[in-house]
Write a protein that binds this DNA or RNA. Sequence first.
DNA 1: CGTAATTGTGGACTGAATCAAAAAAAATAA
DNA 2: TTATTTTTTTTGATTCAGTCCACAATTACG
Lengths: 167, 167
Amino acid sequence: MVRSDPVDTLRRHGLSITAQRLAVLRALARRPHGSADAIVEQVRAEINVISRQAVYNALGTLTEKGIIRRIQPAGSPAIYENRVGDNHHHLICRTCGKTVDVDCAVGKAPCLKASDHAGFQIDEAEVIYWGTCSKCLGAASGIRDQAIPRRNLKVSASKTEPKRNPI
Amino acid sequence: MVRSDPVDTLRRHGLSITAQRLAVLRALARRPHGSADAIVEQVRAEINVISRQAVYNALGTLTEKGIIRRIQPAGSPAIYENRVGDNHHHLICRTCGKTVDVDCAVGKAPCLKASDHAGFQIDEAEVIYWGTCSKCLGAASGIRDQAIPRRNLKVSASKTEPKRNPI
DNA sequence: CGTAATTGTGGACTGAATCAAAAAAAATAA
DNA sequence: TTATTTTTTTTGATTCAGTCCACAATTACG
């Protein structure tokens, strides 16, 4: 069941079919993990014009319908993906923002069970692995590729030296 | 090892001791999961005046030093906690934002291992369980307590259901 | 103490995302 | 088809969390 036809997808969910939504879907099909801004750009390359708001609208309703998924990594703008419904997780590079999918660590969907629910009714387990991708590991010096310039984990390279705790 | 003396904590990490930092630490000791804004408020109740920036500064350096931890739930402002170094996770109520700690699902620190590293060097696994707390489950109607008003998962109650004849 | 370094203050500013009203396009009915 | 109604897009302003900046205040250290 590949059924990757965007028109059909929209229709099946009872959504109006608009050029903008189709373009957003295609953009997501092309690039797995795009930020709203990246999608705006991509869509503008395909369709000539689209408002930023229209992209947010599309992403919003598509997310609501469960057609796409929104991931909101700490300190970075949200990114979207069209792989849904299989409880996979993400591995994000702190340096360049590159995001890759990883399957659940312990098998099927064990992450969905917290050891103590504390009375909560859990509907989703979100797992993000933070690290450094191989490319950024290599260029560890100062290349600063910065696809998604995470401003929060402030660069802090060697500003406050004494990382190693004395005594 | 309770060693909850803020002055000592700061000193041990080679940080200057300022009224603002102490107040921030105390605020965090009092309330486990506070947003920057909530902390500003709390600190202003104790100390008379503190700039928002000072709070952000304090939270930033304390986070850098590993004295506190920053959690950035999708779509909500960051929250901070003073329980660090034990790889626990969080359970957040989508409705009211209430956050509780949960210990790692599968034992010690299994979540730290993704099944496929894809060449990444992982340094942290962030796990957030999303759900609804017991209180909000009860008041499922429309109480709208909204401690942290997650604006992203837009309420979307029945906006897109005009198909159903409303009588 | 006095001086240098660190930290705090207030205000302007940024970027991501949202809101709101009018214009345009789709869906539905005729 | 055309008319009409509903949904979506556009445009522009607005919020919100967080940051940047220059200068004043405080802290640490000799």
